[in-house]
């Protein structure tokens, strides 16, 4: 597939925004209201930038509204309906944090439900496509969800240390205690574990992609000629490049795939893991700059992997264009 920049930016940024919204809602019971408000607005902003950039790759953005009516059959349509609802809920996290319990917790519950749902609808656009066997796996939605969760948590940790100097306003599972050091370990270890799971899923996805090729579809099923005999295509169907070849058969993008995978792993996994690990022992004053660099480097790693996600996907129709 042609890796359109707008789609890479969209899936990465909105994934980060939705993950940030999710973690903000999850820690809303403990975090100071102002931090929740800032994080909620930042989450809404990142998600909105992603949504707007996804409109940029349309030749007729004015027709985008038509997609909303197709929610019964289209994941893109479902995403288009749920995403704005989630953005509104994330904006309301702040006002909710300044309001007392039953009313104030409504946006929290909405974000906890909607944020993963929106990431899932985005991933299902790709995971449901039978014609792209590399995408059609449960690894695709799991990978999207874990990347959203890890990058969102990194941004929330960064916002928290800039706001508060330490991480204890956002207690997470591993650091529920009152001790400051333990509270710092909680979010950091959660981030390392989730990011490791994310890249583990990505690595499994890459290995599966290399193994599966065009899946069950072969030149024999594509032409239905001579079952049991070897079919060789001598000439391409036509001499001029067509839309399908420029859009679906993106060979240049795959040329540097292996080195890009290593770059993605170093930027997205190795550097963030080392940085988060070092913060367990480094003084608190180091946390803001280290976490800022971590978030940016991690985000870049995700974008490289997302670029490969599109560039390495092979549509079965490319079987018709493999001459020789």
């Amino acid at each position: 597939m042609h890796p359109a920049l707008s789609i890479i930016v969209f899936t990465s940024l909105s994934g980060t925004g939705l993950g940030l919204g999710f973690w903000t809602a999850l820690t809303a019971h403990a975090a100071p209201p102002l931090l929740i408000a800032i994080a909620g607005l930042l989450a809404a902003m990142l998600t909105s930038i992603g949504l707007v950039s996804s409109l940029l790759h349309l030749r007729h953005p004015s027709r985008a509204w038509r997609a909303f009516s197709q929610w019964r059959s289209s994941w893109l349509s479902r995403e288009g309906i749920l995403a704005p609802l989630c953005v509104i809920s994330m904006v309301l996290l702040g006002p909710g944090a300044f309001t007392t319990a039953p009313l104030g917790s409504i946006p929290v519950v909405l974000v906890l439900l909607l944020a993963p749902a929106v990431i899932l609808t985005t991933a299902m656009i790709y995971a449901q496509l039978r014609a792209v066997p590399a995408w059609r796996t449960w690894l695709t939605p799991v990978m999207f969800l874990l990347f959203g969760a890890s990058s969102g948590l990194h941004v929330l940790m960064t916002a928290t240390v800039w706001y508060h100097g330490d991480l204890h306003p956002i207690p997470l599972i591993l650091g529920a205690g009152t001790d400051t050091a333990a509270n710092r370990e909680g979010p950091l270890l959660t981030a390392i574990i989730i990011n490791t799971m994310a890249w583990g899923t990505m690595a499994a996805w890459w290995l599966r992609r290399d193994r599966i090729g065009t899946g069950q579809s072969t030149l024999a099923t594509a032409t239905r000629l001579a079952s049991g005999h070897r079919i060789t295509q001598l000439d391409p169907p036509h001499t001029e490049k067509n839309y399908l070849q420029t859009e679906m058969g993106y060979h240049i993008a795959r040329k540097h795939a292996l080195s890009l995978r290593w770059i993605a792993l170093v930027l997205g996994f190795l550097v963030p893991t080392l940085a988060a690990g070092s913060l367990l022992i480094l003084p608190t004053t180091m946390a803001p700059p280290v976490l800022t660099v971590l978030s940016v480097v991690h985000g870049t790693g995700i974008m490289v992997s997302r670029w490969l996600f599109f560039a390495e996907a092979t549509h079965v129709q490319s079987l018709y264009y493999h001459s020789g």
Partner: peptide
């Protein structure tokens, strides 16, 4: 008459004669 790539289950409206 057959479908091309029947495993894709697209139920095409075009059939190909052997």
């Amino acid at each position: 008459g057959v479908d091309l790539m029947p495993e894709q289950r697209t139920r095409p409206a075009n059939k190909y004669l052997q």
